[in-house]
């Protein structure tokens, strides 16, 4: 469904992606990992068409990202930092996004699941970081799309909301959705992810299941395995 060929991106003098190839065809949860500045967000934003690559080709469901913006109808995106126009109310924001996307929605259930009812009439500027993230999650999950892209979904969530998020992910995975996640919380990744895509210096250094990763590095602990591939590459 996602096909990335020879992707290059430079910000000023900083070469972030250099010849990245990626192809994902099946559903499941894919964790995009890598050290800070390895190009995770740039890769995600390139797939979304927010960052324009210097070279290379991306297609989502056979639509080339460069020319056909309508493919974004099939993507639900959760941005890394939940920043919304502050003078809108939560309710208004949700109905606005619904109006813009013109797709069937299931917002009530999600609002109840994340206990957002008491906040619906509050302005977004007055919400706490965690509550904003919950709104963010509702916005990302309320549409039924085949592809989900979640950039650090766990930021600021309390344990209860985290459990709800995991349930949501599980349920969407069972529905055959493809879910891309970036996260620095390895415990969370280990729990939810089917496959790991490890980025290093603008390329994919490792792609495979967590079991493969353990085998490759010879470490049983997931955290140590991730640390091991990072140091292997330094040798």
């Amino acid at each position: 469904m996602i096909q990335v060929n020879d992707l290059h991106k430079k910000f000023g003098k900083n070469q972030v992606l250099q010849g990245l190839d990626l192809s994902i065809d099946n559903g499941g949860i894919f964790a995009v990992l890598g050290p800070n500045g390895s190009g995770k967000t740039t890769l995600i934003k390139s797939i979304l068409g927010m960052v324009i690559p210097n070279k290379g080709d991306i297609s989502v469901q056979g639509n080339r990202v460069k020319t056909k913006w309508k493919y974004r109808k099939e993507i639900n995106y959760l941005p890394q930092i939940a920043n919304f126009p502050g003078n809108l109310k939560v309710k208004e924001l949700i109905s606005m996004i619904m109006d813009l996307r013109q797709k069937p929605v299931d917002a009530e259930k999600l609002i109840a699941q994340f206990n957002l009812e008491p906040h619906l009439n509050k302005k977004l500027a007055t919400l706490s970081g965690g509550t904003k993230q919950k709104v963010n999650i509702v916005l990302a999950f309320m549409f039924d799309s085949p592809l989900y892209i979640l950039d650090e979904p766990t930021t600021g969530l309390d344990p209860n909301a985290l459990i709800q998020l995991k349930q949501l992910l599980d349920q969407e995975k069972k529905n055959g959705k493809m879910i891309l996640i970036t996260s620095h919380i390895l415990q969370f990744v280990e729990e939810v992810a089917d496959e790991v895509i490890y980025l290093l210096e603008g390329k994919i250094y490792f792609k495979g299941s967590i079991a493969d990763l353990r085998k490759k590095t010879g470490k049983d602990n997931f955290e140590h395995a991730i640390a091991a591939i990072a140091s292997q590459s330094n040798d």
Binding site: M50, R72, P85, L100
Partner: peptide, 16 residues
């Protein structure tokens, strides 16, 4: 002031 809002919109199926 509307930068964040713009970023939210950019991920939606809307022409830039």
């Amino acid at each position: 002031n509307s930068r964040e809002f713009t970023e939210l919109l950019l991920a939606q199926p809307i022409k830039r």
